[in-house]
Design a protein around this nucleic acid. Structure first.
Length: 265
DNA sequence: ATGGCTTTCTACGAAAGA
């Protein structure tokens, strides 16, 4: 009868294998229903399924050697899996996208794990690749919102959209995450009808999700570049979004902290 | 930060990350 709570998390783990022990501790603590992973840095066959078997997740992986790689872990069955989002070649050589339908108790939710290119330094081929990738992604986002589903994108967008999302504008003014044309793309996606779930529910908090290795975290020189973008139908069910900053304090942490969203169905 | 950290790879330095 009562409302069903669902916890969906997104985390750029910066290598799933290097992070496996803290990742397992975190799962025990937060007990997420759905986990969207980015930068797993492993081929599909190198994903540590055995280490995670005790948690009984359904797991889908879009990995590659050395770099990038995304995955989705779900307590509920996953169907309708897709790893590409456009017709062009841009996203094919790099594993940066995976989506699936999460089936739970006659209800459901479509989720996607997104890892947009970094794009530094600005003005290089890498930056062009980022813009091209984001253009294809934007088109797909527009198509998806028209399907009027309970849908969300979660992941590392490598976009710091507003001034409030950075500790210091001087720190990022030359960075590919803070270029006007990149921020414009983010706002364009929102204009299609997506809700920036963290910002909707936490108006005045910075919500940093990334701090560079070194002294950045102790000085809180962070940026908010990981996001949940929700369709209105998903936003309607979202109660809370927060950054699990405790994970950034651990030994050998990822440089990103997890983003956690709670839903009531 | 001009990666000053961190991870990966048929590795012992280079590439990539943001």
């Amino acid at each position: 009868m009562g409302q069903e709570k669902i916890i969906v998390c997104s985390w750029n783990v910066n290598s799933i294998r290097a992070r496996i022990s803290t990742f397992k501790e975190w799962i025990k603590e937060k007990k997420p229903d759905v986990i969207l992973l980015q930068e797993i840095k492993a081929r599909n066959e190198a994903f540590p399924y055995q280490d995670l078997a005790e948690f009984n997740y359904n797991i889908i992986v879009n990995g590659q050697k050395s770099y990038n790689g995304v995955a989705i872990m779900s307590k509920y069955p996953i169907s309708d899996v897709q790893t590409s989002f456009g017709k062009t070649e841009e996203e094919i050589p790099q594993a940066r996208y995976i989506e699936g339908w999460i089936n739970f108790k006659n209800k459901g939710l479509r989720v996607a794990s997104v890892y947009a290119p970094n794009g530094n330094p600005v003005g290089t081929e890498k930056y062009k690749y980022k813009l091209d990738w984001l253009k294809v992604f934007t088109k797909y986002a527009q198509k998806k919102i028209e399907e009027e589903e309970l849908f969300l994108f979660g992941g590392d967008f490598n976009i710091c959209p507003y001034k409030i999302d950075t500790a210091n504008e001087n720190m990022v003014e030359d960075d590919a995450i803070y270029q006007e044309e990149v921020k414009y793309i983010y706002k364009k996606i929102l204009n299609y009808g997506y809700f920036d779930a963290f910002r909707c529910l936490n108006e005045n908090q910075p919500g940093f999700t990334y701090w560079d290795y070194g002294q950045a975290f102790s000085n809180n020189l962070g940026v908010r570049i990981d996001h949940f973008l929700l369709s209105s139908y998903a936003m309607d069910k979202c109660d809370k979004v927060y950054v699990d900053i405790e994970q950034r304090k651990k030994n050998k942490p990822s440089d990103h902290a997890p983003l956690i969203a709670e839903f009531s169905f």
